[in-house]
Design a protein around this nucleic acid. Structure first.
Lengths: 211, 211
DNA sequence: ACCATTATCTACAATTCTGACAGCAAGTAA
DNA sequence: TTACTTGCTGTCAGAATTGTAGATAATGGT
């Protein structure tokens, strides 16, 4: 009964988008083995040569994936920090957002896969953390001065930022395992409380409570 | 001129060991795509069916790999903490050892790959971090009491331990990327200084300096 | 010296994955 | 309508990978 098949014809841009969506979803969910042209094509509802048509090759797909993922991550992280002023010292909502992007949305897993598979060679977040450091540090210096305390080194601020990044990524990928190893019962609740605790730790390090 | 080839016959145990060595090395270095029976066999200098002979299947190899890796990691972490007394509060050598195991020896990458590929489902470090917490916490309580300060919550200790774990794993896998994003010039030196800084941060949180 | 065991090899089968190619169909413009 | 572009598909080929089968040789025990 071979039905006459209605082909869905998308714009090239739209097609690339949904293909990349499916690919990144598969990667974050299924891991290293989850990126087969056939499977991705099935998820999207197209034939696998269509993917090759849009991305030249499997490698082209991976490349486009890494580029888009890093751009998205950068945008989301910028959004998390957008609108905040230097004096706004409540790290909790920011960190919550960052952790959410990295863990719930699977970016940490995705980036992790990219690092492992070597798909990520050139600096992806080119300077993002440096910019962040340069945003926070003057505020700390000013605040310290106002309190008559010695100004912190820039490296101290840099390390705070790096710790935030490493812990956020680490939590996104290794978090569930770590919590199991810690023998916690309520995974989600512990994750949430840990984030709050960590946010407070960072805050207190950035701006110690007035003596 | 087909030379008569001298076969090297190992004990089953020894053969398994060198195969697993090669496999984990390939995995940590080349990432997800680096674990092909043929390649591993070449590294070891054997034919690939030999691997199947010892591990039944590729999946069996991966399983054995995960088991051995988690056991090794557990052993190395225990070793890092062994011989330390509760009052010994210098975190630096311990953390150095932990970071070294995770980053230089590639365990973080290995475990990361396992998490991503779903090879790690059952709790691997079963209770390791809980045990660690139970080791540190009484010390903190006692010390606080001696100083006439309020005793810390157990969760605070737990979170410190979790932060150490998450940051150590995160640094092992994402560290290089984070440092690039932070725009550091001397990667190795910054990594080393960051560890020292982090160790001091943990120490000060575990046992605040006497007022 | 002989035998049993088994670690190892060569050769081959089966599956799967990427990629090539030619043609079809869905829009668009003349 | 006609022609043209291009997103999309079906089919096939080549390569690579896992796994099988039978032969071979190293080792330990008798």
């Amino acid at each position: 009964m071979a039905e006459k098949i209605k082909r869905i014809r998308r714009t090239a841009e739209e097609a690339r988008r949904i293909i990349l969506d499916a690919a990144s979803q598969r990667l974050a969910a299924l891991g290293p083995e989850g990126i087969r042209l056939q499977d991705i094509a099935n998820d999207v509802g197209i034939s696998h040569p269509t993917i090759l048509h849009h991305f030249e090759s499997r490698e082209g797909l991976v490349l486009a994936l890494t580029q888009r993922a890093t751009e998205q991550l950068r945008a989301e992280l910028f959004a998390a920090f957008a609108g905040r002023h230097a004096r706004d010292t409540d790290m909790h909502p920011i960190l919550d957002r960052v952790f959410d992007v990295l863990s719930r949305q699977g970016h940490a897993r995705l980036i992790g896969w990219m690092i492992l598979s070597g798909a990520i060679r050139q600096s992806p977040e080119q300077g993002l953390l440096r910019d962040l450091t340069d945003l926070i540090h003057p505020m700390r210096v000013e605040e310290s001065k106002a309190r008559g305390m010695p100004a912190p080194e820039r490296d101290d601020t840099l390390f705070i930022v790096m710790l935030g990044a490493v812990a956020a990524f680490g939590d996104g990928l290794f978090g569930p395992m770590v919590r199991r190893a810690a023998g916690v019962t309520d995974e989600a609740l512990t994750a949430e409380r840990f984030r709050a605790w960590f946010a407070e730790l960072l805050r207190s390090r950035i701006l110690p409570a007035a003596q």
